[in-house]
Simulated scan of single mutants.
Amino acid sequence: MSSLARCWARAVTGEDLVGAAAEAQDLIVASLSDPPRSGLATWYGLLGEMWLAAGKLDEADAALDRADATIETYGQRHAESLLLLLRARVLQARGEPVATVGAVAERAHALSVEREAHLFARRAEALSAELADNPPR
């Protein structure tokens, strides 16, 4: 996992956006997917965040889709609020209406609060504040 964490850190800090995401994707497939291990949905979500940081929105959506499929198949629901938050960020990056992005961010916040995922709740609050500060023109 430490290699995955390094990949995530490199990607979200801008050190090696595409390379870090590609490496993480390979590591997830090689070490977490078969057999499926705990945290698989979370790592696919974080892979989506890496692709988002790299501006690769289709790849981000694909990673989030794999995370959602993992949740549905294996019930690893602890990542759900993070995945909603990242979906909102991808929608924002795609230029979707603020109301659409805000609704997904609000769902992410509500689920985070319900599940006491305080870090994700704060991130959802920050996104909502960002949307409020930058209304459509």
Results as ranks from 00 to 15, higher is better:
residue 1 M to L: 14
residue 3 S to Q: 14
residue 5 A to R: 12
residue 13 T to P: 05
residue 14 G to K: 06
residue 16 D to F: 00
residue 18 V to W: 04
residue 18 V to Q: 13
residue 19 G to Q: 11
residue 20 A to P: 00
residue 21 A to G: 10
residue 25 Q to W: 03
residue 25 Q to I: 02
residue 27 L to S: 12
residue 28 I to W: 02
residue 29 V to P: 00
residue 29 V to E: 08
residue 29 V to C: 00
residue 39 G to H: 10
residue 40 L to F: 05
residue 41 A to V: 05
residue 41 A to Y: 06
residue 44 Y to P: 03
residue 47 L to H: 06
residue 50 M to F: 03
residue 52 L to K: 03
residue 55 G to N: 12
residue 56 K to P: 00
residue 59 E to H: 03
residue 59 E to G: 01
residue 63 A to S: 15
residue 65 D to E: 11
residue 66 R to E: 12
residue 67 A to E: 07
residue 67 A to N: 12
residue 73 T to S: 14
residue 74 Y to V: 09
residue 82 L to R: 13
residue 83 L to G: 03
residue 83 L to E: 06
residue 84 L to R: 08
residue 86 L to H: 11
residue 87 R to L: 05
residue 93 A to Y: 01
residue 94 R to P: 02
residue 100 T to D: 10
residue 102 G to K: 01
residue 103 A to I: 00
residue 104 V to A: 02
residue 109 H to V: 08
residue 110 A to E: 15
residue 113 V to N: 04
residue 113 V to A: 13
residue 113 V to P: 06
residue 116 E to Q: 15
residue 117 A to G: 05
residue 118 H to T: 13
residue 118 H to S: 15
residue 118 H to Q: 15
residue 120 F to G: 05
residue 121 A to N: 02
residue 125 E to F: 14
residue 125 E to I: 14
residue 127 L to S: 06
residue 128 S to A: 10
residue 128 S to D: 11
residue 129 A to M: 05
residue 130 E to L: 09
residue 130 E to H: 09
